[in-house]
């Protein structure tokens, strides 16, 4: 199969993630969109790995997973702390900081 298709797919996923971050209002959903973006990158990396015939891309995907995991840990902690305060994870409710 043409590897370019995977690139298109990953670009699509990345775009969905980006749009999700920009459009969605729930912090958790925003966060999940970011994770989607990271996974889209993973797909890109693996595809390029295949195209180049080297395994570097796959190894990088590992690193990305690690980082994503660390991000999850920290992000969930932050979002949970806000959630516990406000009983809501909507980004719109988080609006004390303004001009």
């Amino acid at each position: 199969m043409n590897p370019a298709n995977y690139l298109i797919l990953s670009a699509l996923l990345f775009t969905i993630g980006t749009v999700g971050v920009l459009v969605r209002r729930n912090a958790i959903v925003v966060f999940m969109s970011v994770e989607l973006m990271l996974n889209a990158v993973n797909l890109t990396l693996v595809t390029f790995s295949r195209i180049h015939g080297t395994l570097d891309g796959q190894i990088m995907a590992f690193f990305v997973m690690v980082v994503a995991a660390a991000e999850v840990v920290i992000g969930l902690a932050i979002i949970l702390s806000i959630f516990r305060t406000r009983r809501s994870a909507s980004v719109d409710d988080v609006n004390l900081l303004k001009y």
Binding site: F62, M65, A69, L76, A77, L80
Partner: peptide, 20 residues
């Protein structure tokens, strides 16, 4: 309970370690 999140996070950390 928040405890479960905690466990999940810990698991992630160690699972990552095992990946390596």
């Amino acid at each position: 309970p928040v405890k479960y999140y905690n466990t999940a996070m810990l698991f992630i950390v160690f699972d990552i370690e095992i990946i390596f």
